[in-house]
């Protein structure tokens, strides 16, 4: 049995930053997977990300990216691409730490995830709010397909579920207008 984590990363209160958790929740409500596949909305983890990824056969991260491309563009990154960004001066415990966690799982514990894919969706806006921009929302289905293709490449099966109620609780009700 392969251990695989599909992790949605991002702050669901900050506009398009919530796209990672949205994609993972859509996957979770639409498909069932082989045993050993976990889906998690991890929010905005710092170094505790290490504990989620150590020892995995494969890690698939879905996150918004700031790469200057047209909003909604999907770009795939592998482990080497992510490691380029390890930081040099850390000011706070809260800074995101995807690259550092990958390194730590490797050199400290000797248990890096064997395969790593980041499905990056170029964001349009990080303004406070629980809804995605149109451009980013339109990319969700494609992001889902990229995750499924990666699973297929890893020989992991998925099945479509019968019922698929939305579990994106933070945008289930329209964002109320300020009084």
């Amino acid at each position: 049995m392969k251990r695989v984590l599909i992790a949605g990363i991002g702050n669901v209160l900050l506009g398009d930053d919530g796209v990672g958790p949205c994609v993972v929740r859509q996957l979770d409500s639409t498909y069932s997977f082989d045993e050993g596949v976990e889906l998690e909305d991890l929010g905005t983890p710092a170094l505790d990300f290490i504990d989620h990824i150590a020892g995995l056969d494969a890690l698939i991260v879905v996150d918004s990216v700031d790469n200057g491309k047209t909003p909604g563009t999907i770009t795939l990154y592998r482990k080497q691409d992510l490691l380029k960004t390890a930081s040099s001066v850390r000011m706070d415990t809260h800074s995101p730490a995807i690259a550092e966690s990958l390194l730590a799982a490797d050199v400290f514990f000797g248990m890096p995830p064997r395969e790593v894919l980041l499905v990056g969706i170029t964001a349009e806006s990080y303004a406070a709010g629980c809804n995605l921009s149109e451009s980013v929302r339109a990319a969700i289905d494609s992001a889902v397909q990229h995750v499924l293709s990666e699973l297929a490449r890893l020989d992991i099966l998925h099945k479509k579920k019968e019922a698929s109620p939305s579990n994106v609780w933070w945008s289930a009700v329209p964002h109320p207008q300020p009084a």
């Binding site: 990216v65 200057g68 706070d92 415990t93 995101p96 995807i98």
Partner: peptide
């Protein structure tokens, strides 16, 4: 400067988590 700032256990980045894949310089002094 970092020693004293770190001693407070700062938490300013309770915010966006967007991945910056281009590997920009991360800290600027």
């Amino acid at each position: 400067v970092l020693r004293t700032i770190h001693s407070f256990d700062p938490c300013m980045a309770c915010a966006c988590h967007t991945f910056d894949p281009e590997g920009k310089r991360i800290a600027e002094v």
